[in-house]
Design a protein around this nucleic acid. Structure first.
Lengths: 417, 417
DNA sequence: TTAAACTTTTATAAAAATTTAATAAAAGTT
DNA sequence: AACTTTTATTAAATTTTTATAAAAGTTTAA
């Protein structure tokens, strides 16, 4: 298998046209089996428009390569039961790294997308300088070592981080800056790890996770909103993540929303994020407390007045606190107005709401829906479903896995053309 | 050629796998030659990853079918000059129909996208009932007859109309309603014309025209804004028109923009269209005149106070009228704020501004740019170019041609799979 | 319940199609 | 004029597909 998937420098260049075509077909079959699970020979024939003997020959080669194995018989559809071919267990692994501003999480996933290590958290801070690269490598190495899996079997590494990320260039424009005309971050990491590395913005990464593993599975036009301190948006159109020309699409939190509004941390005034995010919610709570509102939050604020977190407000709402419910509703109404714009612009079939704020459940979704009803054209809103994320906190660590799934085969397919 | 491109009922079903594959390859070559113009054999080999003898055989078949012909020699790149293969002149024609609320335009285009009939205008009104279908057919028939071209050579018909159109279903949700569970408009027309018909919303159709023939050629992430009485938006992402799950994406004119604003014709209040469109401009002008503003528009309004058209205001601005310039600037600033949202959400490389309002040129673009600078994140706006449409009024009639180009081959390719 | 008839899958051999390699002709460069 | 590069064509080698048969399972009907 080493020889086949590893794709050493110059490996592809040595192949002639027929061999490249065969390599391409094999990669596509592997992707198919990875994404869909074990499949029959007949299924592969149909999927790729090749004849049964050809498909059989490719599968035999993949079995000889050690990548594919027979995995029992499928259900009969009126005749002989088909042999099922699937990826060999323990033959493919993916390392997922989720970097946040103040901590970093890692986990290793197997070929059937099971987390085999649990989530390891490190207090690794995300800054502009590159020192984190080496630290990341050390943590990752010892994690891989601890599992005892063959380093050869680690197919690739996915890395998600906040801020502006150009996934095409493989570079961040906010953190771990390599400098202009320098090797992009992704290539730098790939060199250090000797593995393909794919970086992606955190929200876009979560969006891929929702599309691959969550409520957006099989949907073609989906928006994923992540509501934490800020507001994130991931866009799936015609079944693919769309990131725009530089990879920065989806800056929904910073659209102009309120005239002469509060100063946003982005430097502008009145961004949506100033009235519809976790930080907006916290600000409303602080202002309410200062104005002498009677609420469960008082107890909290007496201890640490500046440390009111959205989650405490959500908690209070679930305990029936009227003020918390009110400010959540205001946040939701603002957000809903923003979402109404999104529905009009993107005409999605589904909008998934995730992030910590999603834990407010009906206290946020009801006012959102109310705003949508007010601000959205009937024909559009009637065709849009709003749902809460099922993946929840898992989405963050599954994101890089989905990113690797999306890119590792594409990358190979591209370089074969 | 009749047999080849016509695709009679059941033609494809008769083919075995190899024949279907060959048919698919030939269709793809024809599309390539149609979109790119005459090409060499070597180019086709590279483009489709097939060997020279195979490609030559396919081209020979296409020549025997009467679809392709040799069209001279290309430039040498250091050796023998390549033979160029192109679509036979006068072998493919497209009928373009542009329906507006109060009139309908038609023209026939040849295989190199030249308008061979000029634009014929009919006072055909767009309503909910289907009586227009027969009228359309009669007009079209006599137009085709007048050119003397073989009806067989009419490849397809493109039809654009305002309102909600589901291009996938081939049905309008605003005009020419066929009723639920009835044959969609597109199929109804296809039956009457005995030709493939493709319908599309007017703005999306224009967007395709800009992408195929205008300033968006070769670009991958483009937004096209049409500014007339209303505001239209067409979205190209990753090189393709994106229309959303029901085909209604891009309802930019009716996003909520002003709290408690003017009543919009859509029924809601404060839509962007109420402060940033041609009708908003006309309203501002009327209000200004009533308030006694001193402006060149006075002369006009004295005659027909209710008939101030955006074009008159633009004209006045070009003549130096300060009031006209001011209200255009206000319209532009509002629009610019909306465009700032679009840039943040879509991260396009180019935004094309078309429609009659584009004739205001710097009087509209300068305030637009000013708003973008105010409301848009630096990293995003720096990577976005704003340009005026070069196609201008031509875009409307070229749109259905681009729609046919986009769909007619896809349609055949789909049904081969 | 059992056996025959029918489907689907798998395997293999013959037929067909495609690619590669080889070659000649054409066009440009030194 | 000699050499290089590219195109176009033919023949040989390879690959893919089709056709066929056997194996395995399901359904139908006695």
């Amino acid at each position: 298998m080493g020889a086949f998937l590893a794709m050493e420098e110059g490996y592809l260049e040595k192949l002639n046209h027929v061999e490249r075509k065969k390599y391409l077909q094999k990669i596509k079959i592997v992707r198919h089996l990875y994404v869909k699970g074990a499949r029959s020979n007949a299924d592969i024939c149909n999927r790729f428009s090749i004849s049964s003997p050809t498909s059989m020959a490719l599968l035999n080669e993949l079995m000889a390569d050690g990548l594919v194995e027979k995995q029992g018989r499928g259900e009969s559809v009126g005749g002989r039961k088909p042999e099922l071919y699937g990826l060999r267990n323990n033959s493919l692994f993916v390392l997922s790294i989720e970097m946040e501003k103040f901590s970093t999480r890692m986990a290793i996933f197997d070929g059937t997308n099971n987390n085999i290590t649990g989530i390891h958290t490190f207090p690794l801070k995300l800054s502009k300088d590159l020192s984190a690269v080496e630290e990341l490598y050390q943590h990752a190495s010892s994690l891989v070592l601890s599992t005892g899996i063959d380093a050869d079997k680690l197919m690739g590494i996915g890395l998600s981080m906040p801020g502006l990320v150009s996934s095409r260039e493989g570079d961040s424009y906010t953190y771990l800056l390599t400098g202009q005309d320098e090797t992009p971050l992704q290539d730098l990491l790939a060199l250090r790890f000797s593995k393909p590395v794919y970086i992606q913005n955190d929200v876009k990464s979560i969006t891929l996770a929702e599309h691959r593993f969550g409520a957006a599975q099989g949907k073609r036009d989906v928006l994923v909103l992540t509501l934490d301190w800020g507001i994130g948006l991931g866009i799936i159109q015609d079944g693919k993540l769309r990131v725009g020309t530089s990879g920065f699409a989806g800056e929904f939190g910073h659209i102009p929303f309120i005239d002469n509004g509060v100063l946003c941390h982005c430097g502008k005034r009145g961004c949506l994020e100033t009235v519809a995010s976790g930080s907006a919610l916290a600000r409303m709570a602080r202002e309410g407390l200062q104005a002498g509102q009677d609420t469960l939050l008082k107890a909290l604020s007496d201890q640490e007045p500046e440390k009111i977190e959205p989650q405490a407000i959500i908690q209070a709402a679930h305990e029936g606190d009227q003020y918390a419910i009110n400010i959540l509703a205001e946040t939701g109404r603002n957000l809903g107005k923003g979402i109404a714009m999104l529905i009009q612009l993107f005409n999605p079939e589904l909008i998934i709401i995730g992030g910590k704020m999603a834990e407010a459940r009906q206290y946020i979704t009801t006012p959102i829906q109310q705003s949508i009803n007010t601000y959205c054209m009937t024909q559009l809103r009637e065709r849009t479903e709003i749902a809460l994320s099922k993946l929840g906190a898992q989405a963050g660590i599954l994101g890089p896995v989905a990113t690797v799934m999306e890119r590792i085969f594409e990358h190979r397919i591209e370089s074969t053309k």
